[in-house]
């Protein structure tokens, strides 16, 4: 197992964070959970994160705003969006801003694992 591969889960729904964390663990991925974009931005070990699973609509900064902030830095971390608001305009904006994928909720788990394997390699 490559312990240097860490996935960040940024979602304001606690049950989603817990379920996603355990689900990723069952596939051998390590994860960190954040209940808001602000939490994530203040996280000290942000450079260690290899991929972000990001909700679009959250209290405070939205997923798209976080994406914009991260994009302004060097080597932005790949982002996979997860949302129940699958409006085309949001999807388009996210993809144009360089998102790796834009998944609807409930997340198609096989599709998610496929994207993660492409990004991080098989665990």
């Amino acid at each position: 197992m490559n312990s240097s591969c860490i996935i960040a889960i940024v979602d304001d729904d606690q049950s989603i964070r817990e379920a996603m964390g355990d689900f990723l663990r069952s596939y051998g991925y390590e994860s960190r959970s954040f209940s808001s974009a602000e939490d994530f931005l203040t996280y000290g070990e942000r450079p260690l994160i290899d991929c972000i699973l990001l909700d679009v609509k959250m209290h405070g900064l939205s997923g798209l705003e976080l994406q914009a902030i991260l994009r302004s830095g060097k080597n932005p971390t790949p982002i996979i969006f997860m949302t129940s608001h699958q409006e085309d305009a949001i999807r388009k904006a996210a993809m144009e801003a360089g998102a790796h994928a834009f998944l609807g909720k409930p997340v198609d788990l096989r599709l998610l694992i496929g994207h993660l394997e492409k990004l991080l390699g098989t665990r």
Binding site: D13, S15, M20, D22, S26, P106, L109
Partner: peptide, 12 residues
Amino acid sequence: QPLGALLMNAQA
């Protein structure tokens, strides 16, 4: 939200 979490939990 709960359905998504439920599916992930069941899968896990």
